[in-house]
C-alpha cells in the first residue's frame, strides 16, 4: 500500500466549459449538422441527426455512468514525472493538465451503478491521447487490485488513442504487462470485468486491458484496434475498407459483445451486472 490513499472526493459537478467549445452551436464532425449545444448536452453529446458520438471527458463520463454523487475517487500520491528526461514531455503534461482539468489520463475509484457497487476506471482521450505511462498503468493496476480485494465488479471505460505513452519509452510498454498481471489475477480469482470501448481505443490499451473484458461493449463508430489506420495504409499500400476497425466491424468479426449507444450504456451495464450478480 503506502502510496495509495483513498480519499472521499466527490466528483465536482462537471464544468460544461471544459467539455464544450465556446458558443451556442456545434458543428457535427460527421454530418456537419449545426447542433444547438443545449440539445447536444441533453443528448449526452451525441449528434441527434447522425448519432455521431462526440468526445467527452472522464469526469463527465463518470457523471453519466454512475449513480448520482456515488463516485469515490482513489487519489494516488504517485504523480507524473519524466522518467527518461524525454524532450518536451513536461510541457506536454502541463498542457494536458490544463486542457482537461485532470492530473493524468486515467480517473480511478469506486461508485455505484443501479445501486450496485463497482470499481471503475475511465481513461480520457483528451489527456495526451489517453495514453498509458507509469501513472496510468499504476492507477489501472491499483483499481483492479482494489476490485479483487473488495470483491467488486470492474468496469474500465477506455478512450486511449495511442495506447503506450511514447515519452516514457519501454517503461510505458511495461505498464501493459503490469496491468495484465493484475487483470489476470482478478479474473482467475472470479472477478467480473466489463470493458467499455469508446473512440478511439488502440495500441497498447487495446493490447492489454481493453480487449480482455469478460464482456466488451463499444460505443457506435469508435475506432478500435491495434495498429493505427495510417500505419496500416503505409504498410499494405492499399486503401483501407470502409468501416474497418470500427465498432460495428469488430462486432461482425466476433471481437466484442455489443455496440451500444451512449444513451443506453448505463442501463446496459445495470442489466449485465444484474444478470451476472453473485
Amino acid at each position: 500500500m503506502g502510496w495509495l490513499e483513498k480519499t472521499y472526493n466527490r466528483i465536482k459537478k462537471v464544468k460544461k466549459k471544459i467539455d464544450v467549445p465556446d458558443g451556442l452551436w456545434t458543428k457535427c464532425a460527421n454530418c456537419s449538422e449545426i447542433v444547438y449545444n443545449k440539445t447536444l448536452d441533453e443528448n449526452l453529446r451525441v449528434c441527434p441527426k447522425c448519432n455521431y458520438h462526440f468526445y467527452i471527458g472522464a469526469c463527465y463520463r463518470i457523471d453519466i455512468t454512475l449513480d448520482k454523487d456515488s463516485f469515490f475517487q482513489y487519489n494516488s500520491t504517485f504523480n507524473s514525472s519524466n522518467p527518461l528526461n524525454f524532450p518536451e514531455y513536461e510541457e506536454k503534461l502541463k498542457k494536458a493538465e490544463k486542457s482537461t482539468n485532470l492530473d493524468e489520463a486515467a480517473l480511478i475509484g469506486e461508485g455505484k451503478i443501479g445501486g450496485r457497487e463497482v470499481a471503475i476506471t475511465v481513461t480520457d482521450f483528451g489527456f495526451m491521447g489517453g495514453s498509458m505511462g507509469l501513472v496510468v498503468g499504476e492507477r489501472i493496476a491499483t483499481v483492479v487490485d482494489k476490485a479483487l480485494e473488495k470483491h467488486l465488479p470492474l468496469i474500465i471505460i477506455s478512450g486511449s488513442g495511442g495506447g503506450a505513452r511514447m515519452q516514457e519509452g519501454v517503461l510505458s510498454l511495461m505498464q501493459m504487462a503490469k496491468v495484465s498481471a493484475s487483470l489476470a489475477e482478478f479474473k482467475t480469482k472470479g472477478g467480473l470485468y466489463i470493458s467499455v470501448l469508446t473512440h478511439p481505443t488502440m495500441g497498447g490499451a487495446m493490447a492489454s486491458f481493453a480487449s480482455r473484458g469478460d464482456i466488451i461493449i463499444a460505443e457506435p463508430g469508435a475506432l478500435l484496434g491495434f495498429a493505427g489506420p495510417r500505419v496500416i495504409k503505409q504498410t499494405i499500400k492499399q486503401q483501407i475498407p470502409k468501416g474497418f476497425q470500427r465498432s460495428e466491424s469488430l462486432l461482425k468479426h466476433g471481437m466484442i459483445d455489443l455496440v451500444v449507444d451512449r444513451n443506453n450504456i448505463r442501463s446496459t451495464l445495470i442489466k449485465i451486472l444484474d444478470f451476472l450478480k453473485k
Binding site: A181, G225, F226, A227, V231
Partner: peptide, 26 residues
C-alpha cells in the same frame, strides 16, 4: 513489431497479444 495489416486486425491482433500478457503473468 506485430504486423499492422487488415487481416491481422480482423482476427484480433490486440486481443492475441493481450491474452498472452495475461497468460505469461500467471
Amino acid at each position: 513489431g506485430a504486423y499492422p495489416g487488415i487481416e491481422a486486425e480482423q482476427r484480433g491482433q490486440a486481443e492475441a497479444i493481450a491474452a498472452n500478457l495475461e497468460k505469461m503473468s500467471q
